[in-house]
Design a protein around this nucleic acid. Sequence first.
DNA 1: GATGAATGAGCGTTCATTCAT
DNA 2: CATGAATGAACGCTCATTCAT
Lengths: 191, 191, 191, 191
Amino acid sequence: MSKSDKREEIICAALELIAEQGFHGAPMAMIAERAGVGAGTIYRYFENKDVLINELYRELEEKMYPFILDGYTTEAPFRARFVHLGTALLHYFIEHPLHFRYLEQFHNSPYGVAFRRDKLLGTRSGCDFFRELFEQGLAQQVLKDFPLVILFDLSFGPLVAVARDHILGFVQMDESMITKTVEACWDGVRR
Amino acid sequence: MSKSDKREEIICAALELIAEQGFHGAPMAMIAERAGVGAGTIYRYFENKDVLINELYRELEEKMYPFILDGYTTEAPFRARFVHLGTALLHYFIEHPLHFRYLEQFHNSPYGVAFRRDKLLGTRSGCDFFRELFEQGLAQQVLKDFPLVILFDLSFGPLVAVARDHILGFVQMDESMITKTVEACWDGVRR
Amino acid sequence: MSKSDKREEIICAALELIAEQGFHGAPMAMIAERAGVGAGTIYRYFENKDVLINELYRELEEKMYPFILDGYTTEAPFRARFVHLGTALLHYFIEHPLHFRYLEQFHNSPYGVAFRRDKLLGTRSGCDFFRELFEQGLAQQVLKDFPLVILFDLSFGPLVAVARDHILGFVQMDESMITKTVEACWDGVRR
Amino acid sequence: MSKSDKREEIICAALELIAEQGFHGAPMAMIAERAGVGAGTIYRYFENKDVLINELYRELEEKMYPFILDGYTTEAPFRARFVHLGTALLHYFIEHPLHFRYLEQFHNSPYGVAFRRDKLLGTRSGCDFFRELFEQGLAQQVLKDFPLVILFDLSFGPLVAVARDHILGFVQMDESMITKTVEACWDGVRR
DNA sequence: GATGAATGAGCGTTCATTCAT
DNA sequence: CATGAATGAACGCTCATTCAT
């Protein structure tokens, strides 16, 4: 197994265990076992558990963005762009339930709060295309006159909730339901 | 300190610590210390940590419902009732940030998932007025034709997200912003 | 409930719980509950748990002796006296399984060792009629020439083992089996 | 210290402490300390305290059988075989007082009762040579006509009692006393 | 005297992290 | 490098004992 393979196995094992069992249910020894490496080996790649958790988060984000931005063009009309992003996001969550559950675990924890604070204060980049889109929407007056944060909440709050309920089996999302849901979000933010 | 005072102190200490630090940031010994009681004392009032956590959740719910239902009347027009509940909920969260953060911790954990499953399957009562409202809305065709679960998500997803961002200091909600936010939710679900 | 009734209830509750569950399985609070008294009350009658345990032992011994000595006469022939005592002892154990199991718990514990040491060193009286009988047997040369302790062991070792197996249900002792067993013990010690 | 040395140290520390102080006089932390290992280390070798206790019992049994069976032959006359086993057992106990006291602690506890039940019901093998010997003795009519269990009690009851008294210093067993004692047991069971 | 709520030391066990091999 | 055995602090929980009522 090559060096980067090992890293990948560790990341993957951590993702599965944490997504399924939470941070509690994923001791380092268990992550190591599932990754097929020694317990000490993890510490060659990640300084400690916190670093592993944050690094894994970063990697998931990086895998998510290309997926969401695939086919996205800043030339399209505003509504179409909004629908594209929302639909892509919901698709991503539904097709990557482990990623989704990990992201949820992460956000709902001290890690996530610190992370989010950094991002809003601009010390962290990442999903700036969301921010750009919403700023444009405000400038063009197609969006309701809300602070950016609230526009985010109105858009993603429902999507995340729907994704969770789908993954937990409380509702079954098909293509048309996804579209309708995103359009409902649009109704929420559009002027 | 009277008997029920002690119970109250424990509940209160648990609320604060868990809201602020999560379940694993709140060892029983620390809860006891903050409550000003011995470690063993907690177990006179709560069989174990799980029971304490669930009991605390139940108590918060019981405090929340009267707050939200205050002034609520099934005679009012549908939109008014929706706005009432949404506004009240957001108010409650904003005025009780510890409660809010505890509820979030709870829902985002094995406790919450089990709880939610019970509720959706109808084996648990509680916020049935929400369900009733939404069922009426569907029947009267004032709401978009969605499964109940998704209507919940479209309504509460944003409210919860907004409350979280307010509490974390990412946005400052005033009365008018609250109203506007709830109305945006309404735009999301109304036909 | 009178003062001595209370003491009796405590003794009785302790006997039952310890006999059935061992010292471990008999917390003071549980003893108090079964006795129908407050937990603190026990400490009015017994300085602490150790004292309770030793006192209870002493009381059981005191109840046992009259039972065993009933009908016993130093005038009878030696063998008859031996058989009387052995039979009576086995009967007592079989008819008072709680007593028997308590005595066993006691003897097999630091309490019992200290107790036995006292007794053999003569600082404790009690079952001196056993000692007298065996000393006579030695003097009259009807018993094998063994130290007293070994004669005790040859006599009571089997009886205790048989009683235990009966109580645990590994064998069913009836009157004739009891007699035969005691006679076998006699064969062991007689010259 | 090698891996198996550590396991041995733990076993040995547990044996000493439990033999001397009983199960509750031997907390895991104290066993670890005496073994010269960290508290957590025990759990690498034994799943929990129960498993350690049972494993230790099994190991003692395995050490005992070869000792007892050394020089034992099924060809010898019945009485000789009985005397061999009895003498060997008593020797073993006297030469291994810690083993003896541990075995006593074990048998006089929920562990031992369950264990003994298994053995009598035949779901456990082990000292089947005892059983075989006694069954032969019954068939050949050299033993008194008793259930097996009682023959066991008549034989081992005294031996165990004598061993205990020797170890506690209540009597001093030498070679001739051992022989005489076993012969007395034989008198007890022989027809 | 009687109570039982309160205590806190002590238990068995877990797990992030280290380090000799 | 990679390992995984070893560690020990920290956890949830119990229970003998005390003491205000």
